[in-house]
Design a protein around this nucleic acid. Structure first.
Lengths: 151, 151
DNA sequence: GGCGCCTATGGAAAGGGTTGTCAAAATAGA
DNA sequence: TCTATTTTGACAACCCTTTCCATAGGCGCC
């Protein structure tokens, strides 16, 4: 079971990391960015652009959808979120704290997602990459099955 | 390295399976379908709709792009091909012979895809599923990295 | 073979997610 | 505060994919 950072730790890691990235790239602190990211951190799950857009409107931030995409792309460039591509053409984004990688176990019946990590698997992946002389940058492992409740 | 069926075995499995599916669903044998699929089998790698469309034109088949998509979707429904979503918003399709699973090592620079299989990883996956009492039905493992030539 | 039903096709249009454009607004530094 | 530069919102443009629709083409039946 992956241990997820609690909210306090998450924020303590995230905001300085973001500030650093912004400063490094001559980017600016803006109200929209801050609010959008606050919402994202609150949710702290897989979100797509449209969900975040709605969530922002809910808390009274009148922000354009384009800005949501720009913000998500920025976060991804900064390696602060991870982008997932799944089976309907839309991307999901997920906060990506350092050293907190996990994979997904997905119930094909109820769509429930369990996160897990397995160090042994990771090591074998590195071995495979090494065999083919690849410099590994990322990976995704999704297991699909039927959860206990749905069986 | 995964062992791929040779061309003869591939065709001996594929065409009867397709015929069976068509018959079962009251679908028809058409020139376009047959030719498109012939090209796909010839290539026998990851293809996207546009590649297949071009390939078909190359051999003198004037087929609409819509038909290419329809054909690929049909094959997927029949479970004769597998659809992949790698990181650029377009889908790749791959012939999917029974009992011939493999995973992917994708170069993030040149988009080259290498196939591999690793029994040890598979076993560990089963173990993970068992831990969570999931009945595993499928999985996908994509490794992303930079290939030797792009480094 | 010919008839009729029903599926398949091509081309164009529509769809849905994402990115680009551009004038106006906001930020950060002097 | 003033100025250079980035960011924003609204909307258009984009790309891949699906849908529409009128026509063409399989396939069973006589």
């Amino acid at each position: 079971m992956p241990v997820k950072m609690n909210s306090r730790r998450l924020e303590q890691w995230f905001w300085p990391a973001l500030d650093k990235y912004l400063a490094l790239h001559n980017l600016k602190q803006t109200r929209q960015r801050k609010k959008l990211i606050e919402q994202f951190l609150n949710l702290n799950t897989h979100v797509d652009a449209e969900m975040l857009h709605r969530k922002a409107k809910d808390v009274g931030l009148n922000v354009g959808l384009a800005t949501v995409y720009r913000t998500l792309n920025l976060l991804q460039q900064a390696d602060l979120v991870e982008q997932h591509f799944f089976k309907d053409g839309r991307s999901l984004y997920e906060i990506n704290p350092p050293d907190e990688h996990h994979d997904h176990l997905v119930c094909v019946t109820c769509a429930k997602v369990i996160e897990f990590e397995d160090q042994a698997i990771e090591e074998l992946q590195n071995k495979v990459a090494a065999t083919h002389k690849f410099k590994l940058t990322a990976h995704r492992l999704d297991l699909y099955g039927i959860c206990p409740r749905c069986q």
